[in-house]
Each structure stands twice: as structure tokens, then as C-alpha cells.
Amino acid sequence: MDIFLQQLVNGLSLGGTYALLAIGLAIIYSIMGLINFAHGDLMTLTGYAMIGVVALGLPFPVAILCGLVAATLAAMAMERIAFRPLRGASGASMLLSSLAVSTVLHIAFQVLISARPQALPFPPMFSGAMDLGFARIGNIQAISIVVAVLALIVVNAILYRLPLGIAIRAAAQDFDATRVMGVQANRLISLAFGLSGVLAGIAGVLWIAQRGSVDPALGFNPVIKAFIAVTLGGLGSLQGAVLGGLFLGLLEVFLRAYLPEDTLPYREAVALTLVVFVLLFRPQGFMGKSEAVR
């Protein structure tokens, strides 16, 4: 039982991180139909920014704050430079341009910083574990879950209470109608990118805390997982993104824990195959809606 609990915690912490990434992707996709490959590079950038700030001798919380600010500004800059000229282009075009942006950033990290992992030691409170009597839970896992839940609550509050969030949700339903209602498209999209940047930054901090180092390709794997989570949840559905992220995280962790020893190398393939199976029977994902034909 306690092993199950520990795995559940691990799954939730991984899934929570995926969910943070996925909801950022879903916000952007639902507004402008862009699947942003460069989303993962925001995580990487957060890491490098933190390393820089720590190297300056500033306290760790300041480093985290600077990392998040860097991710936010980078997301907004990315939108301004790379995606705005393509507004209204096909989904495939935008996806490819984001892939190109990601490649350029990746090379830039390699050339300007280093191809090798750079250490980013986290304060002791992130390592170690708590003994709850019935189960031992890693601090970082606990922190991941708490942070992910808090972030999702805040995002929820933004989306359902603030004018910005209401505009984002309206734009996710019907972007053109939202513009006609007087919402400025450029400002809205820019802020939406900012929001997705913060979330990617938070996910980046949590991700790096588990690994202790930053390398140029850091964001690639998690963001691909987040793509899959978003698809699983139903492309464009914000709640679906969260569900998909949690589902994928739990699936990966439980497969690792409970698959027979000799099939372990296949666990990634098994997890993805299960996801494909879900999509085979529910092509529109958990929360996706099919479009009306007129």
C-alpha cells in the first residue's frame, strides 16, 4: 500500500509538471491554432537564467523569480518576432516555424553557453524526504504537487475571474468574435504567451529541481510529453490539458513501477501506445468537441 502511495505521489508530481506545460500549450493552441514546439526551450531558458543569477551571488528565490521573468519575456518576444508575422497561416506552417525557432534556440544555447549540462544546485529543502509514517515522500515531489496545484488554481482564477482570462477563454471559443467585441488581438495574444511563459518557467524550475543541471535539450522531452497530454485531453480544451497531463504522468510512473522487469526498456513505448489506443477509440480526446458542419 505504501509503495502504491509513493508511486501515486511520484505520478502526480510528474503529471502536475506535464499539466503546467500542457495548459500553456492549450491556451496558445486554442487562441491561434499554434502547436508551439519552442515551448520547451522556455524551460531551458529559465534554467540558464537561474544559473546566471546564482552565479552573481544573489539569493535563490531571486534566481527563481528572474527565471520566471525571463521565461515570460522570452515567450512574449517569441510571439512578437516569430509568430506574429504568421498570424492566420495554417496550423502546419505555424508548427513548422515554431520547430525552426526551437532549433535556432537549441543551437544558440549550444554555441553561446555549452553543449554540456551546467550544474544548478538547489537548496537543501528540495532534496531529502518526509516520513509520513505510512509512506516516505520526497520533498521535491511534494513541492511539485503543491506548486502545480497552486499554479493551476491561480490560472483558473485568472481564466475565470479576470477580464484578461475571460477574454482568453472567449478567444479560445471564437477568436474573431472576441476581436469584434473590442478585445485587442495583439495585446491578448501577447499576454496569453506571457501566461504560458510563466507556466513553462514554473514547470522548468520543477523539472530542473529533480535533475540538478541544465542542458540545451532539457525542454525537448517534457514538451513532447505535453503535446501528447494536450492531444489526449482534447486539443484546445484547457481542462482537458490538465487531465491529459495528470493521466500521462501517472501512466508513466505506474508503468515503471509495475511493468515486469524485462519489459522495462519498453515502458515509454508502452505508455505512448496506450495513449494511441485511447485516441483510437476517442479521436477527439477526453474533452475535445467535434465541430458542427453547416
Binding site: 493552441y29 502547436i35 502546419a92 513532447i224 503535446f227 501528447i228 494536450v230 492531444t231 485516441l279 479521436p283
Partner: peptide
Amino acid sequence: LGGSEAAIATLG
């Protein structure tokens, strides 16, 4: 799958 979903499925 539909267009965008299918693209991600090919990535999978």
C-alpha cells in the same frame, strides 16, 4: 484523427 491531432500522433 483530425489534422493537428494526427500530426502529434505521428510524432508519438
